[in-house]
Every structure is written in structure tokens, then in C-alpha cells.
Lab assay of single mutants.
Amino acid sequence: NPITQSQFVPLGEVLCCAISDMNTAQIVVTQESLLERLMKHYPGIAIPSEDILYTTLGTLIKERKIYHTGEGYFIVTP
């Protein structure tokens, strides 16, 4: 039996792509809307728990890849 190979993409990278897409579409990015986006637009991805999502978003903020305001999460533009 051949083994199907899937590509590994770090969660942080997927979140940045999803946040960027949602920002472009002017969709408010909350943790809930982000999870919905992942389920709908990234089939096959293991949906992270709320704790993992929260921690990963926190890491992306520390790395200055995203920022959070009262209006949601946004990509940091250079």
C-alpha cells in the first residue's frame, strides 16, 4: 500500500495566511472566526484546541508577525 504523504505546514504560518486573507476580505478576525476559517478553507488541517490557538497567536504577536486590537487580529505590514 502506498503511503499518502501530506505536507507539514506550521500552524503559525497557516494562521498568518488565514489572518491575511481575512484582513483583505475585511472580515473581523477573532479566535472564533479564525477557527471557522480554518475549518472551511483549510480542509485536512488538524484544528487546534483553543489553548494551542491562543498560545500560537501570542507567539506570533511576540514575533511581531501579527498584532491585536479591539477590532481583531491583523498582519503586521512592513
Rank of each mutant, 00 (worst) to 15 (best):
Y73H: 03
F74W: 10
L35Q: 14
F74H: 09
T56N: 05
V76P: 04
I47F: 11
I19G: 00
C16G: 02
I75Q: 12
F8W: 09
Y42H: 12
I61Y: 01
T69L: 02
L38V: 12
T24D: 13
S33D: 03
V28D: 06
Y67F: 06
V29Q: 00
L15M: 07
M22W: 00
K65R: 12
T30N: 12
V76M: 14
D21Q: 05
N23H: 02
Y54C: 14
E50N: 13
S33H: 02
I75N: 03
S20F: 02
F8S: 15
A18P: 01
P78F: 03
E13Y: 02
G72W: 00
T30W: 00
H41W: 08
V14S: 05
S6K: 10
E13S: 06
G72I: 02
Q7I: 06
T55W: 06
T24I: 10
G44M: 07
Q7D: 13
Q31Y: 12
C16P: 02
Q26D: 12
R37F: 12
V9W: 14
R37H: 15
H41R: 08
I47C: 12
L53K: 00
L11S: 04
V28T: 15
V14L: 14
I75T: 09
Q5F: 07
L35W: 05
F8V: 09
P48T: 03
F74L: 04
F74E: 13
I19Q: 01
F74M: 15
T24R: 13
T24A: 13
R37K: 05
P10W: 09
I45G: 06
P48H: 07
G44E: 11
T77P: 13
V14E: 06
V28E: 13
I27N: 02
A25W: 03
T24E: 09
H41C: 11
T55L: 10
H68I: 04
K40P: 01
D21Y: 06
L53N: 01
V28K: 11
I45P: 03
G70L: 11
S6T: 15
R64F: 03
M39K: 14
E13R: 08
C17W: 11
S20C: 03
T30K: 02
G72L: 00
D21L: 02
F8Q: 11
I75C: 14
Y54I: 14
P43R: 07
I27H: 04
Y42V: 08
L60V: 01
N23S: 02
N1H: 08
F74Q: 14
S49R: 05
P10R: 13
Q31G: 11
E71W: 04
G58T: 14
F74P: 01
H41I: 06
I27Q: 08
S33W: 00
Q5R: 10
P10K: 14
E63Y: 02
V29I: 01
M22E: 00
G44P: 08
L57W: 00
L57E: 00
V9A: 14
S49C: 07
V14F: 10
V14K: 05
T4H: 13
G44A: 10
I52F: 12
Y54G: 14
I52C: 10
Q5H: 13
V29N: 01
E32N: 10
P48V: 03
H41E: 08
E63N: 07
L15F: 06
L34F: 00
F8L: 10
Y67I: 15
N23W: 02
I52P: 02
C16E: 06
T4L: 09
L34A: 00
R64M: 05
R64C: 04
L53W: 04
E50F: 11
I3L: 12
Y73Q: 03
L38C: 03
V28S: 11
P2H: 15
Q7K: 11
I52M: 14
T56Y: 07
V9G: 11
N23V: 01
S49F: 04
Q5V: 11
V29W: 01
G72R: 05
T56P: 03
M39R: 13
T55H: 08
I61E: 11
Y67L: 07
V76Y: 06
E71C: 03
Y73K: 01
M39A: 10
